[in-house]
């Protein structure tokens, strides 16, 4: 009897073990991929400072980007500050442009007309997510760049055009996460406010939005992560001039736009190639910082309600 039971169990145990092995291997593979990716970008990116002898400070604060040449001291001209400034400018500005629209439509969808919101508006924004970035870039080239040129003069390429294109791209992300955040505010808060004779807008401004603020902040930072990392659409409209941006409407460059423009043209192992990896490393670290911030907000915002 006992022997028979053991026999019946054996194939089940084998299936259990096989399942564990297969799923475990998937986890391991993903973990290894992520770690090797970070290691690869880091090792190549650090070569600029270790083998090519560029001081870290002159990379982070230098304002001249001309990696083919050396300065008087024989140090390559690889100042990344223009691109770092460019990336942060388009990121912040695009969020500033997108946030009012995202927040406004999120409030409309949750508080004003939920039926229209879920039936029409949300599918529409999801459509926006699926549009490839090159299409956004093209629209930017055809419409936004000429528009900027029409009133600001110059070429029309620059941080403003890049930010507007990015704002369109991050709008669905920020909107749908803001909708989730506002929807998660307990109905009892609204009842409490209405019960005291407050109007809808007082309730939204003083109870709903403050309660949803950590979720909305998460939405903004996820939008920033996306804006910071977007390459193609920005490259098409930002002007690609590696200089410290002096105005929003003069050509500039971002970390991503310089990498995409130059990576294919520079041979492995050259200073130019190494320093592009350094730019990628800066991008990677910034993305990690964004994700870290989201986790911190999530943990602080969690014990509510």
């Amino acid at each position: 009897m006992a022997k028979g039971e053991e026999k019946a169990l054996r194939p089940k145990r084998a299936i259990e073990r096989r399942g564990l092995a297969i799923t475990g291997a998937c986890v391991l593979l993903v973990a290894v991929l992520v770690l090797t990716l970070i290691f690869m970008v880091a090792s190549r990116g650090l070569a600029t400072f270790t083998t090519d002898g560029t001081p870290f400070a002159s990379f982070m604060t230098g304002t001249t980007w001309n990696p083919h040449q050396n300065d008087a001291n024989g140090i390559p001209l690889v100042g990344a500050l223009p691109m770092i400034a460019g990336s942060f400018s388009v990121t912040l500005l695009s969020c500033l442009i997108a946030l009012p629209f995202a927040l406004g439509s999120a409030i409309f969808v949750v508080e004003v007309n939920p039926t229209f919101g879920t039936r029409v508006f949300q599918p529409l924004t999801e459509l926006l997510v699926g549009i490839p970035s090159v299409v956004f870039g093209l629209v930017g080239l055809r419409i936004i760049v000429p528009w900027t040129r029409s009133w600001a003069g110059g070429t029309g390429y620059g941080i403003l055009s890049g930010s507007i294109v990015l704002a369109f791209m991050i709008l669905p992300t920020v909107t749908s996460l803001s909708i989730d955040a506002i929807r998660a505010v307990p109905q009892s808060y609204r009842d409490g406010s209405y019960g005291l004779g407050c109007t809808r807008w007082q309730t939204i401004a003083h109870v709903v939005l403050p309660s949803a603020s950590s979720g909305i902040l998460t939405a903004v930072i996820l939008g920033m992560t996306r804006a910071f990392g977007e390459a193609l659409a920005v490259q098409m409209v930002v002007g690609n001039a590696a200089q410290i941006p002096t105005s929003l409407t003069t050509p500039a460059a971002t970390l991503t736009s310089v990498i995409t423009t130059s990576m294919g043209n520079e041979a492995m192992g050259t200073v130019y190639n190494d320093v592009l990896w350094s730019l990628a490393l800066v991008l990677l670290i910034m993305s990690l910082v964004f994700i870290l911030i989201i986790h911190i907000i999530g943990r602080k915002g969690a014990p509510r309600g």
Binding site: G192, S193, G195, L196, G197, T199, P210
Partner: peptide, 27 residues
């Protein structure tokens, strides 16, 4: 809105706002 000021309501589940005690009272 005037009516709800004159006719107050206390709900089934305590629902203070996520504000300070002071701000809850003067809301």
């Amino acid at each position: 809105y005037d009516l709800r000021r004159r006719v107050g309501m206390v709900f089934q589940h305590p629902n203070p706002f996520p504000l300070t005690i002071y701000e809850n009272v003067v809301y």
